[in-house]
Design a protein around this nucleic acid. Structure first.
Lengths: 235, 235
DNA sequence: CGGGCTTTGTGAACGTGTGCACGAGTGCCT
DNA sequence: AGGCACTCGTGCACACGTTCACAAAGCCCG
């Protein structure tokens, strides 16, 4: 086995690997054993050269003239993404969003079991969401320590987010997925990713506004290009 | 008034404008009338030069030696993003996520009122979520037409997402916010944005795995860099 | 009214990401 | 065994985004 992939993988590639991984898993389930960069690119909605370049960061695992072994590639990507074992997560905030996240079974299935949900609101403590009992935020350190949690999910109202982030960091969490529309200030070493629904909608709004010529919005029924080619939406 | 901003704004800038907008709104509420690029950059967690360049795409609305007028900047950004009027959205899928999105008041407040929620499941039709009654997906065209909806939110299971997207497009929707972990195929003219929680977690997993040296995960209590400087997390 | 201080707006350099084009390796068929 | 068709891996050029650095522009104060 050669010197494998200790070089840094570009961010853009890292963000696409999960997409390839999902598609490859589906293909594997359908009994596909080998796949070309062209086909994978089509399914992922990207350029074939990009697929090859992305995969080349993992090592030269393709076979020229043939393509890539699906299962082997699944293994390699999972390995590179650190998905060879589970990463338990703790959710902070048992409001609307926290509930939905806990109830969304997809987490556990994909290797991110919910190790706990915490909230400051005593009236929420003890209720069960998605099979997990809500505990008080004071128990955060114990949960993180006992369940070996590295990843925290912030689902609090904006006003509580910074404080909650600090509690997560103090408890030993090193990565945070932040749903609150707030810019967090955390130690350098902490990895933060942000998901902001309002931002996404406002970006769509920009394009709608632009489409409409910067004035009134479109007349329903005319919008949407029924005629014409289809494409695979870019991520 | 000069020839204002009919030039295209870079994607990277568009995705930051909503962040500036939120911060400026907060500053305005606090009575701040003027703000420098340096201060705004600090609050947004970005470089000051980037702020200035971003804002320069809107026009030269700053005053040298002084800064930017907060309220005026709010107005200009809202204008450029098309936020001078509401954009009603329709949610497809009344499951866990659909419910949470409907119940999350932030949508309406930020100019994206929920014009309707639809689902295929007859047993869900008629129930009320977040003040909006769930209707059958067959009614989608009427909802889109009567409420002048341009933006659709996909909150279905993955298996139903492509079909749902096609129904949205057929109904006249021209922008889609997709929460399903699926690559959508839609007409070129349709703007799609994707939010994939599993992808975000897997990206965090990559960094955790890398941090741990590619082997076992960290020992709790050691992780997290208590010592050292803090930073403002980058988006 | 002039000099100095502050902050913007932007040209230029740099770094990252994308896509083409093609050499190189592999399997298959005759 | 040899040739052919196919597909990977990657060098290179280009586009996009970020950051620096500085001239231009405005305010304030003496």
């Amino acid at each position: 086995m050669p010197d494998r992939a200790r070089r840094r993988i570009p961010d853009a590639t890292v963000s696409r690997l999960p997409v390839y991984l999902r598609i490859l898993g589906e293909q594997s389930d359908e009994g596909v054993e080998s796949i070309s960069s062209e086909r994978l690119a089509e399914l992922a909605g990207v350029n074939a050269a990009k697929v090859r370049k992305d995969l080349s960061y993992l090592g030269s695992y393709g076979t020229r003239g043939v393509g890539y072994d699906v299962d082997f590639l699944v293994y390699q990507i999972r390995r590179e993404l650190g998905l060879t074992h589970d990463w338990p997560v703790v959710i902070v905030g048992a409001g609307n969003l926290g509930q939905a996240l806990a109830g969304y079974g997809g987490f556990g299935e994909r290797g991110f079991p919910v190790a706990g949900i915490v909230d400051v609101d005593a009236s929420k403590v003890g209720t069960v969401m998605g099979g997990v009992r809500v505990r008080h935020i004071d128990e955060l350190p114990q949960i993180v320590a006992s369940k070996r949690v590295n990843i925290g999910v912030l689902a609090t109202p904006p006003s509580a987010a910074q404080e909650a982030a600090e509690l997560l960091v103090a408890a030993g969490v090193t990565s945070i997925l932040n749903f609150a529309p707030v810019v967090l200030t955390v130690p350098r070493a902490i990895e933060v990713r942000k998901v902001d629904l309002a931002v996404e909608l406002q970006i769509l709004s920009y394009h709608e506004q632009r489409r409409a010529g910067g004035a009134v919005h479109m007349v329903p029924g005319v919008g949407g290009g029924q005629g014409g080619s289809t494409r695979t939406a870019k991520a």
